[in-house]
Design a protein around this nucleic acid. Structure first.
Lengths: 217, 217
DNA sequence: GTTCAATATGACTGGCGATTCATCTTTCCG
DNA sequence: CGGAAAGATGAATCGCCAGTCATATTGAAC
C-alpha cells in the first residue's frame, strides 16, 4: 500500500463542466485568454494542425495550464462553438431589431452576417471543422439558429409580410445561402461588394428568379 | 562508393501524377479498389480518424500497396475529390438534360442532388473535409461547378426565362442552398419529402418570398 | 520454362502531439 | 503574518500512425 497513498478520492470539484470552473479572478482571466487563443489558433491553423502547445503559446501560459480549465482539445472546441454561436446570434439579433419588415430584416441580416464573417473569419473555420469532430455541437448551432429564424418567419407570415410556405425548409435554404455567400465573398475574395450581394438576394426575395409564372392573386 | 551503388537514378517513371499510374490491368484494378475503399473509409470515419491501414484493410491489400499508387494520404483525398466531382457533375448534367426551361432544370437538379447525396453520403463528408486539408481542391470543385451553372443561367437569361441579375452571386447562393438542404434533409433526417423541398424552392424561384413588392411590369 | 518488370507484402520506425504529474508560485482570508 | 486552496509550470510519457523497405509473388513476353 505504500505505492499509492493518496491517488484515490482526489478531484472532488472537477465534476460537471470540465476540470472545474475558475474560482478566482485570475483564473477567469487565464481561462478567457486560452479560449481567445484557441479561437485564433484554430481559425488560422485549423483544428487538427493546431497543437495544444500552439494555443498555450499564443495565450502566454504553460502547456499544463490548459488542462486546469479544459478537459482536452475536443472540449475547448465545443466551448468555442457555443461561445461563438451566442455571439453571432446576439450580434445579428441586434442588427435586425429596427427592421421595419421581414424583407428589410433579411437584407440587414445578410449584410451583417457577411460583415461579421469578414471581421471574424475564425467563426467559419471553427464551426465547419467542429462538424467533423463533434457533429452534435454543429447541429445544435444550426438548430438553435434555425429555431429563432423559423419563429421570425412565422411572425412575418402572420403579419402578411411573406408568402405562406414551409418556413423550416426555407430557413435551411437561407442559412445555406448565407454560409456560401460568406465563404465566397467575405472570406475568399471580396471582389463583389456586400451591397451588390444583398441587392441580388433582395431581388430574389421580392421577385423570385423566373420572369413568367407571376401568379399575382 | 560501396555504400550506395544503386540508390541514385531510380524512380525513372514515377514523376508526374503520383508514384506511377498502373501499367497493368491488375494494377488498375487494385488502384480502383483502394480509391473506392478510401471513399468509404473517409466517408464513414472522416479523413483524420481514418488511417491508411483502415483503407487498405477495406480494400483487402497490404499497407505498403497503398504507396504503390498514391503518394500519401493527402494525395488520395485530392484524387477522390476530383473523381467524385466529375461524377456528380456528370450525373446532374444528365438529369437536367431534358428540362424544358430553367425552372424545371432547377427543380430536377435539386431533386437529383438530394437523391444523389442520399445514395452517396460520402460525397458530402469527403468534400467538406477536403476544404481544411487542401483548400485549393475544394475551391476548384465549386468553381468548376459554379462556372457551368453560371453559363446555364446566362443562357436562361438570354432566352428570357429568368430575370436579369448577377448570376454569379445567384449561383453561389443556389449552391449554398442545395448544400444545406442536402445536409439537413438527405443526410441528417429524412423527415421532409424531397418533393416538399423542391416545391418550396420552386415557389421561391417563381414568386419570391415576400407578398407585396410584386413589380410585375 | 526462364526472366524481369510490375505488383504485393507486412513488420518496422520515427516523430509528433495530447495528456500527465510532481513541483513551484500566487492569491485569498482570517 | 501563515497556511491552505487555487493556479501555473514544463519536462516526461505514451500511444498512434504515416510512411519505408527488404523481400516475396505474379504474370506476360519470348
Amino acid at each position: 500500500m505504500t505505492t499509492a497513498p493518496q491517488t484515490n478520492a482526489v478531484k472532488p470539484a472537477a465534476v460537471s463542466g470540465g476540470p472545474g470552473a475558475p474560482k478566482t479572478a485570475r483564473g477567469a482571466r487565464t481561462r478567457a485568454r486560452i479560449l481567445k487563443a484557441a479561437e485564433h489558433t484554430f481559425g488560422t491553423l485549423g483544428y487538427h494542425r493546431a497543437g495544444i502547445s500552439d494555443i498555450t503559446r499564443a495565450a502566454g501560459v504553460a502547456q499544463g495550464t490548459f488542462y486546469t480549465y479544459f478537459a482536452g482539445k475536443e472540449e475547448i472546441l465545443r466551448e468555442l462553438v457555443r461561445d461563438m454561436g451566442h455571439q453571432v446570434r446576439a450580434h445579428l439579433a441586434a442588427e435586425i431589431l429596427d427592421a421595419g419588415n421581414r424583407l428589410e430584416a433579411e437584407e440587414r441580416g445578410l449584410r451583417a452576417f457577411l460583415q461579421y464573417l469578414y471581421e471574424n473569419p475564425s467563426l467559419y473555420r471553427v464551426l465547419q471543422e467542429a462538424q467533423f469532430v463533434d457533429e452534435a455541437i454543429y447541429r445544435d448551432y444550426y438548430e438553435a439558429f434555425g429555431k429563432g429564424y423559423v419563429r421570425m418567419l412565422a411572425n412575418a407570415t402572420r403579419k402578411g409580410e411573406i408568402r405562406p410556405g414551409n418556413n423550416e425548409v426555407r430557413v435551411w435554404a437561407l442559412m445555406g445561402m448565407s454560409n456560401f455567400l460568406g465563404l465566397r465573398y467575405a472570406l475568399w475574395d471580396r471582389d463583389v461588394s456586400f451591397d451588390e450581394i444583398v441587392d441580388t438576394l433582395s431581388d430574389l426575395f421580392r421577385n423570385g428568379l423566373t420572369l413568367d409564372g407571376k401568379e399575382k392573386p
